[in-house]
Design a protein around this nucleic acid. Sequence first.
DNA 1: TAGATTGTTAATCGATTAACAATC
DNA 2: TAGATTGTTAATCGATTAACAATC
Lengths: 217, 217
Amino acid sequence: MTEKNEVRTEENKVISPVVIKRLPRYYRYLGELLKNDVIRISSKELSKKMNVTASQIRQDLNNFGGFGQQGYGYNVEYLYNEIGKILGLDHINNIVIIGAGNLGQALANNQEFDSNGFKIIGLFDVNPRLIGMTVRGVEVYDIDVLEDFLKENDVMIAALTLPASKAIKVAGELADLGIKAFWNFAPVDLNLPEDVIVENVHLAESIMTLSYRIHSK
Amino acid sequence: MTEKNEVRTEENKVISPVVIKRLPRYYRYLGELLKNDVIRISSKELSKKMNVTASQIRQDLNNFGGFGQQGYGYNVEYLYNEIGKILGLDHINNIVIIGAGNLGQALANNQEFDSNGFKIIGLFDVNPRLIGMTVRGVEVYDIDVLEDFLKENDVMIAALTLPASKAIKVAGELADLGIKAFWNFAPVDLNLPEDVIVENVHLAESIMTLSYRIHSK
DNA sequence: TAGATTGTTAATCGATTAACAATC
DNA sequence: TAGATTGTTAATCGATTAACAATC
């Protein structure tokens, strides 16, 4: 009996979402260390840099296996690569961006995604003034050709950078066309079938928590 | 003895960050209800809409006071306004955006911030091709005039939409100039004095958690 | 009044931290 | 070997859910 949207390791262990959220930050810090030619690091050293406990780092990593060595710590390059694999960054993940406004263009321009295997292969919009232009070599297509585009390309993720009202409709259509993962920037909750994954980036909610902290001081 | 960056109510109660993060979502749902002329709602009804437990809603709200009424539920407009006050949305929060690229422009163009009291009063960049242009009526200034601008304007928040390498330096300078709250879009952790608040939007980390869920299925 | 629903206490569940034996 | 540090179990802490008396 599997719960909806559960995430499990190969051994079929359930991994807590809070652990998953921390993995990319480990990955970023390890990437920095790697860039600085650091060969090995202990959970204690890393914990100081990252402002977390060494215990948490070891607990988190051991959800996925033993990557370290007693008395030594962790090999930076090995751990970096292993976390990359866990996060699926050893694959190319093709992305379409629905909504080619500033936000869609900002995502297309972001080099950080590229370098982690996220490949933006098309932008889509209804606005004729945007259609035909290119952003970092990626073309903006008429949204009418999206269905055909999806048939011809192996798209893993649809990023939704359009107004809330349109996002719901488009997400439903894309889900019907087989898209199983959405990166949603519209300020709305998409109600999609259970097997569809949604990651929300709610910017207004983000700045509101900042505002809270300012005003509650 | 107060812990660093703690957040307390008027009664000096510590509010958990997980509760704070949920408030904007309540606010959004209540706003929708208000728009649809719904007068009152019970925690049970709201819990169904939002996919959380009624218990959690009542617990969360009661951190800040009793906003409901036994046998009735909550008045939508009243609760909406009260949560708005808790979040500091009854103030105008002036924002400067440092980095006038696509992302900075996307934030400046976002009407959702405006309607919640977040007022973008200036964009700043080093790029002469951007300086002088306006985005939704907001001017892009040379970053050299930022110091003077901050003296003449009551800026609450600096949004950092520039490369990681530059973000650290600029954040330090802005903190020295008295900015106490940062909305950081650069993929780096800013290490600023204890009394400075930072809200991070790490987009690459967001899409990596999505990737994890795709590939761990 | 009777029914509904809150505010709040108690019970449960999950996440974090501490501790330490295993071992490199 | 001695010192260091992991992997993992146990203890603590915090968050969520359940339950229900209070009361509108």
